[in-house]
Lab assay of single mutants.
Amino acid sequence: SDFTIRIGDRTLHLKNVSEEILKILEELLRRGIDFEELRKIVEELIK
């Protein structure tokens, strides 16, 4: 499924993301992860 994360004025667009990855990202966001850290993790996950 497609997913968009907005943190402040920044946006991260994800396409064809599995439910498992979404759950991980949601947990990281709940813990207050930094946007740049989140972006790096996402890039690793979707390689």
Rank of each mutant, 00 (worst) to 15 (best):
E19D: 12
D2Q: 01
D2L: 00
S1E: 10
L14N: 00
E27I: 12
I5Y: 01
V17F: 03
I24G: 06
L45F: 07
R31E: 05
R6M: 11
T4H: 09
K40D: 11
K40P: 06
I7S: 02
L25M: 04
I21V: 14
D2P: 00
S18L: 01
V42T: 07
S1D: 07
E44L: 10
D34S: 13
I21Y: 07
L38H: 02
L12D: 00
R10V: 09
I24K: 13
E19V: 13
S1F: 15
S1I: 14
R30W: 11
S18K: 06
K15V: 06
R6G: 02
R30P: 02
T4A: 03
K47Q: 09
L45E: 07
G8P: 00
S1Y: 15
D34F: 06
H13G: 01
L28T: 06
F3W: 04
G8Y: 02
G32P: 13
S1Q: 14
N16V: 03
L38C: 03
D2W: 03
R6V: 11
E20W: 15
E27L: 15
R6E: 09
E26I: 14
G8C: 02
E43G: 08
E36W: 14
I7R: 01
L22A: 10
R39I: 15
E20L: 08
V42N: 01
V42H: 03
E44I: 09
L45Y: 09
G32V: 06
E36H: 08
I21M: 15
S1H: 15
E27S: 13
K40Y: 10
F35Y: 10
I46P: 05
E27G: 09
F35P: 06
I24S: 10
D34V: 10
S18P: 14
I7G: 00
L22V: 15
V17A: 05
L29H: 03
T4L: 08
I33V: 08
D9V: 04
F3C: 06
L28H: 13
L25P: 00
I5D: 00
E37C: 08
L29I: 13
I41Q: 10
I5T: 00
N16D: 05
R31N: 11
E20R: 07
G8I: 01
S1N: 11
E43S: 10
I41H: 08
R6P: 01
E19Y: 14
L25Y: 01
H13C: 11
L12A: 00
H13M: 10
K47L: 11
V42W: 04
R10M: 13
I41V: 12
E43F: 15
K15C: 03
K47M: 14
E36M: 10
E20Q: 10
F35N: 03
L25V: 15
E26T: 15
R39S: 11
E44Q: 14
L22N: 03
R39K: 12
R30E: 08
K47E: 07
F35D: 03
D2A: 01
L29G: 03
R10T: 05
E44C: 12
N16R: 06
E44G: 10
L38R: 01
L14P: 00
S18A: 03
K23V: 13
E27W: 15
I5G: 00
K23H: 12
K23G: 13
L45N: 05
R39G: 07
E20H: 08
R31M: 08
R31A: 08
E26G: 09
F3A: 03
E44R: 11
L29S: 05
G8F: 04
D2N: 02
R6N: 10
V17H: 01
L45S: 06
L29E: 02
I21H: 15
F35S: 04
K23M: 14
I21N: 15
K23I: 13
G32W: 04
E27T: 14
F35G: 04
L29F: 07
R39C: 04
T11E: 07
V42R: 00
I21A: 12
R6L: 08
R39E: 13
L29D: 02
F35W: 07
E43Y: 15
E36D: 14
F3E: 01
L14K: 00
E44F: 15
H13R: 11
E27H: 10
E36L: 06
F3P: 01
E20T: 09
L25N: 00
T4G: 01
L38D: 01
D2V: 00
E37H: 10
K40E: 10
G32M: 05
I21P: 02
I7Q: 02
L45G: 04
I46K: 08
V17M: 04
F3M: 09
D2R: 01
E20P: 15
E27C: 15
E20N: 09
I46E: 11
S1V: 13
I46N: 14
I7M: 06
N16G: 10
R30G: 05
E27Q: 12
E26C: 12
K15Q: 04
R39Y: 14
E37Y: 09
F3G: 01
L12Q: 00
S1P: 06
R39N: 12
L22Q: 14
L25R: 00
I24R: 11
L45P: 03
E43Q: 08
L12G: 00
E26K: 15
T4N: 05
I46D: 12
V42Q: 02
I7K: 01
E36R: 07
I7L: 07
E43V: 09
I5N: 00
K47H: 12
L12I: 08
I46A: 11
I24H: 11
L28F: 13
I24Q: 13
F35V: 04
D34Y: 05
D9T: 13
K23W: 13
S18Q: 05
S18G: 05
E20V: 06
G8W: 02
L25Q: 00
L14D: 00
F35C: 02
I33Q: 05
I21G: 09
L38N: 02
G8D: 03
D2G: 03
E26P: 08
L45C: 03
R30H: 12
S1G: 11
V17G: 02
K47W: 14
D2C: 12
L28V: 09
F35R: 02
E27D: 11
H13P: 01
L25S: 02
R39Q: 13
E19M: 14
R31L: 07
E44M: 11
K15D: 02
N16S: 05
K40Q: 11
G32S: 09
V42P: 00
K47Y: 14
E26L: 15
I33A: 10
L25T: 06
I41C: 08
I5M: 03
S18N: 08
I41G: 03
K23R: 13
V17Q: 02
S18R: 05
H13L: 12
T11C: 03
D9C: 14
E37K: 09
I7P: 00
E44D: 12
E37L: 12
T11P: 00
L28P: 02
R30Y: 11
H13Y: 15
L22D: 02
R10Y: 14
L12H: 01
T11G: 01
D34L: 09
K40V: 11
L28D: 03
G32E: 12
T4E: 09
E36Q: 10
H13F: 13
K15H: 09
I21L: 11
N16C: 05
K23F: 13
T11N: 03
I46R: 08
R10A: 07
K40A: 14
K23A: 14
S18E: 04
E37Q: 12
E27V: 15
D34E: 12
K23P: 11
L38Q: 01
R30I: 09
D9L: 05
E20D: 14
N16A: 05
L22Y: 10
E43L: 13
L45Q: 06
L45W: 09
E44A: 11
R6S: 09
L45K: 06
S18M: 02
K15M: 04
I5F: 04
N16H: 07
L14Q: 00
E44T: 10
S1C: 05
D2Y: 02
H13D: 02
E20F: 14
E37D: 09
L28Y: 14
I33W: 10
E36T: 10
E36S: 08
K15T: 08
I33S: 08
E44Y: 14
F3V: 13
N16E: 03
T4I: 15
E19G: 13
T4W: 03
F3T: 03
H13T: 12
L38M: 11
I41E: 08
K40R: 15
F35T: 05
L28R: 05
R10S: 07
L12K: 00
L29M: 12
I33C: 05
I33K: 08
D34P: 11
V17N: 01
R6I: 15
D9K: 07
L14I: 07
F35L: 05
I33R: 07
K15A: 05
E19I: 13
K40S: 11
R6H: 15
L45R: 04
L25E: 00
R6Y: 03
D9A: 06
D2E: 04
K47C: 09
L25H: 00
K47A: 13
K40I: 13
K23D: 12
I24F: 10
L28I: 07
R31T: 08
D34T: 14
L12W: 06
K15R: 11
E19K: 10
L14C: 01
R30L: 11
E44K: 10
E37I: 09
V42F: 05
G32F: 05
I7Y: 04
R6C: 10
H13K: 09
L12F: 12
L38W: 05
K23N: 11
K40W: 10
K23L: 11
E27P: 08
K15G: 03
I41T: 12
R10E: 07
H13V: 15
F3D: 00
I24D: 07
I46F: 15
G8A: 02
E26V: 13
E19A: 14
E27Y: 15
L14T: 00
E19F: 14
T11L: 06
L29Y: 07
I41K: 09
D34H: 07
E19R: 10
T11F: 04
D34Q: 15
I21T: 14
E37A: 12
E26S: 15
R10K: 11
R39P: 05
E36N: 11
L28W: 12
R31K: 12
T4Y: 05
F35H: 04
E37W: 05
G32C: 12
R31P: 03
